[in-house]
Design a protein around this nucleic acid. Structure first.
Lengths: 136, 136
DNA sequence: TTTTCCAATAAGAATGATTACGATTTACTA
DNA sequence: TAGTAAATCGTAATCATTCTTATTGGAAAA
């Protein structure tokens, strides 16, 4: 996802255009890795020394709820990255060294079919962890 | 897994038989749901009012490292349950209401095959969340 | 049985991530 | 440009988890 599309979604939902919000989005646009709230704060405080955690967390939560960012829990910390452009449902390989991801086009739920007939399935998580070719 | 087997593993690895350890294991033996450290502490403090968090966390970590318990992150908190008996690699459906699990016999990694040739795969996570027939 | 040793535990402080909140500032609208 | 609600700041609170130090307890040796 790019800045324009993200702002389109934000405007549609009545969110104001602020410089902080814009810079947070710019950081994610320029980094394909999963980042933590602290990563964001560290970068932001170079330009805005008074930037507060509250602003970072509040905006990250907003972005996730609007599907601008996607989140996952890695070693006990929430990590965020720009939501994938691809409209095809997919999953991720995550490099535990550099944090970069690779899309996995298949979804195990397709193959699961009617294996859980009486169950209500609300959600699922499939992630692969390891090292990418560059880090190996 | 049952108490006897768990103690067999602990003894093999040189861990002492203590009453606290035994009661923690008993709690897991009698509950098929995923429990948090706090859940354990709450039950334990009825019998041992001075029970400390440290003891709970230390033992949970020990049990996980010995594959007596298995752990997963649910809504930001680590949850634990007795390691499955089944020797066949599998995954879990987790009921978000009652916390009970159902084994899913298939593993998406089997089907992924050689889709990530240049990657080093260290780990993977596949979990399905929803409501079990009883809770639906 | 008694002694001894070291793992195990208690108590509580420390840490690290995250959330909450009153006061202030900023972006949009009329 | 003024009014208003949203956004942000500054800081404190919270929550899970880990660490530190002194003490206790299990089990092997005497």
């Amino acid at each position: 996802m790019n800045l324009q599309k993200a702002w389109g979604i934000l405007k549609e939902n009545g969110f104001k255009e602020t410089t902080k919000r814009n810079q947070i989005l710019e950081i994610f646009e320029g980094d394909e890795r999963y980042l933590t709230a602290r990563d964001i704060l560290d970068v932001m405080q170079k330009d805005y020394p008074s930037m507060s955690y509250d602003t970072v967390y509040r905006n990250l939560a907003t972005f996730v709820s609007l599907d601008i960012l996607e989140a996952t829990e890695l070693s006990g910390e929430k990590h965020f990255r720009m939501h994938c452009e691809s409209d095809h449902h997919h999953h991720h390989f995550i490099c535990m060294d550099c944090g970069k991801i690779k899309e996995i086009p298949l979804c195990p739920m397709d193959l699961l079919g009617a294996a859980l007939p009486a169950y209500e399935i609300d959600n699922h998580k499939f992630e692969i962890y390891g090292k990418c070719p560059e880090c190996k």
